[in-house]
Design a protein around this nucleic acid. Sequence first.
DNA 1: GGTTGCTTTCAGGCGACTCTCAGGATTCAC
DNA 2: GTGAATCCTGAGAGTCGCCTGAAAGCAACC
Lengths: 232, 232
Amino acid sequence: MENVKVLIVDDEPNIRDLLSTSLRFAGFSVHAVGNGADAVNAAEKGAPDIILLDVMLPDMNGFSVTKKLRSMGINAPVLFLTARDETADKVTGLTVGGDDYMTKPFSLDEIVARINAILRRTKQVETEDSVLEVGEIKINQDAHEVYANGEPVDLSPTEYKLLRFLMSNPNRVLTKAQILDHVWEYDFNGEMGIVESYVSYLRKKLDPITSEPLIQTKRGVGYMYKSTKSSN
Amino acid sequence: MENVKVLIVDDEPNIRDLLSTSLRFAGFSVHAVGNGADAVNAAEKGAPDIILLDVMLPDMNGFSVTKKLRSMGINAPVLFLTARDETADKVTGLTVGGDDYMTKPFSLDEIVARINAILRRTKQVETEDSVLEVGEIKINQDAHEVYANGEPVDLSPTEYKLLRFLMSNPNRVLTKAQILDHVWEYDFNGEMGIVESYVSYLRKKLDPITSEPLIQTKRGVGYMYKSTKSSN
DNA sequence: GGTTGCTTTCAGGCGACTCTCAGGATTCAC
DNA sequence: GTGAATCCTGAGAGTCGCCTGAAAGCAACC
């Protein structure tokens, strides 16, 4: 997981900064550029392990950039970023090999998960495990499947993302603002009450199966996923 | 813990002085400015380890300042300060990476705790341990959990903050005024009798578990957390 | 086009927490 | 020993945060 190099290519500075900051915090080594030409240069010199590439760039589009890269022998997998309306037709044919694509706006937790999934598949570097198991809950991130005490649990996409975020920070209180910023799309404009709602949904599905409530409320602070094991 | 540089950005001189004084006393190296432009300059020259940033500034808002900072390669984590009513909409997207936010009015002890928590997570400098253990009481600050002789104790937020403050000054008498100033929000307008009440609450919860009363009354002066062990 | 499931908001209700007050207990000075 | 200051603590009013059910928007899928 150490020293994974990510190249970010996006012409919107906001997105670039957002991605840089949060991927750097997630432990990646980050380099960000704003157009296709710079991307080709940076990829040549920096030898990234994965490339985050906005499909619509000022100078060239995703097709051209990847074509150029491949012709230069740069085979790092690409995670394409596209606006929501330009989905199907523009992207088809792009995600060959280990590539993948995400629509904007995305959630920060989700993009880290996708990067790890791609690296796992292409296996060019050591990555996180695809199975996240904390206490009585087990998540298979490749299959998007959740088990509580071995019993499968059916979760909606948002429920799944929330649970994954909580489980990747066990025994640490997370504020509702942090949860909102990591689990919801970055342009989400609503209130934090939605976190309460989804915690309630998760509890309703999980608590009947587990031996004890796993998501604890820390009144006035936030929520915490409790793992009984690591009791220090 | 030595030589941690904090940059304070707030347009209200009162808040600026309050923060400067108390953070300096807490052992930080402090620099304070009153607007976004100065903040960018100061951050560039001073290379702070953490930035305290009011969201609403006269010239630019928190978003713009951080954007500018990030684009300049300054990746110091940011602790945002926001008024209580402008929480939801203004705050979304702020707690990226190691960042966090607090609502005004805050308590001084709380802000020091949050600064340490952020530095701990981003690990760019040596910081205090997340576990505070003095005598028979142990506090896990990440989980907001308290143990007395290994037994978990359930505390309200204010009880927790009071205990933490007492424990971080063991074997030293703290006056009620000091306690009020550090544990309660800076605009608290009530009487000091409330400290007596909360000390009473703490004793009722802790004394049955510990071998001896831990919070001692120094009549006419204040209270002291007694630690038999670390007598320095 | 209608059905279905998911997301998001909202409001009622409930329990927990904060803060105040006052009577009783303790300590200290003299 | 007496009085005065200080502290302790139980009771209570009011507030705040959190939970949850209900329902309105959305989007995807037959």
